[in-house]
Amino acid sequence: MMASGPPFALGVETHEGLHALTRAIRAEEDGKELRKELAKNMREALKPGAAEAKSSIMAMPSSGLMSTAPALRSAVAKKIRPEVKLGGRWSGARVKAFKTKNVRGFPNAPKRLNRAGGWRHPVYGNREVWVQQHGKVDWFDRAFQGREGLYKAAVEQAMEDMARRIASRAE
């Protein structure tokens, strides 16, 4: 690396680049604020994807219990959000559908609704009669189909902007 260049590589589209960027942020005096800002910008880049996934689950047809149980689709939609981690065993940005812990005793609802096989459950709590139920297959995956590159580029752009900002300080 040249002495007059930035303290790290500007190509941050790889995990090594992300690790180099987070190390450079830690080395800065206001590193904590820079790290928060980078995470915020990366989450902002993924928000349109999360909104698309939420609208996809809300478009799933619904029939069943009206007012006696919490709404499954809206509970799953509330648990979809962008996640950014800058360190540890996994570093990166993704849109994740978190578990729905207290909704109808169905903590894996986002995962099961996305599977082609669906899930089995007892009919109205009768443990002797079970049925196989299917959700809207690939509702989560289809929300991102064809747009993966767009979201990846937006996250990479947020990382590149922060890298340039830190590099300009070093000059």
Rank of each mutant, 00 (worst) to 15 (best):
M42P: 02
R169E: 00
V76F: 05
R43F: 06
K152M: 13
A158K: 02
M159I: 04
S63D: 06
W130C: 11
G31N: 08
S67M: 05
L86S: 01
K78F: 01
R120S: 11
K47G: 06
A20D: 10
E44M: 15
R104N: 07
S56F: 09
G135P: 03
K111E: 13
P7N: 03
R112I: 04
M60T: 12
D138G: 02
K85P: 02
E33K: 07
W139K: 01
Q145Y: 13
G11I: 10
L150A: 12
P6Y: 04
A158Y: 01
S91D: 08
E156H: 13
N126M: 08
Y151C: 06
K40C: 05
A154I: 12
A59L: 07
R73L: 08
W139N: 01
D141M: 10
L65K: 14
D30F: 05
L65G: 12
E33L: 11
V76H: 00
V129E: 15
G64N: 03
V76A: 02
A59T: 01
K96T: 14
V131W: 10
V123D: 06
M1H: 08
E128K: 15
R73I: 06
G11F: 14
A97P: 01
R120L: 08
A153E: 12
K99P: 09
P48H: 13
E28D: 04
K96W: 06
V131M: 13
R164E: 06
G117H: 05
A158G: 02
M162F: 04
V84H: 00
T100C: 03
A77C: 09
K85I: 14
R120W: 07
A69Y: 13
D141G: 15
P110F: 03
M159G: 06
A163L: 05
K96G: 01
K111A: 13
L10G: 04
R120P: 00
P48N: 15
I25S: 02
G88V: 03
N108L: 08
R23G: 05
A163P: 03
A45P: 07
L18K: 05
E28C: 09
R23S: 07
A27Y: 02
A109R: 03
H19M: 12
W139L: 01
A59I: 03
K85T: 10
K111N: 11
L46V: 15
G92N: 10
S4G: 14
W139T: 01
L86M: 04
M2L: 14
S63H: 11
G135K: 05
F140Y: 13
A69P: 01
H134E: 13
P107A: 02
A143G: 05
K101N: 07
K136C: 04
R165K: 13
L18H: 03
V76G: 00
G118N: 03
A20L: 02
R89A: 13
A154C: 09
K54Q: 10
E156K: 06
S91P: 03
V131Y: 11
M1G: 13
G5S: 15
I166N: 00
T68M: 09
R104Q: 14
I166C: 00
W90E: 14
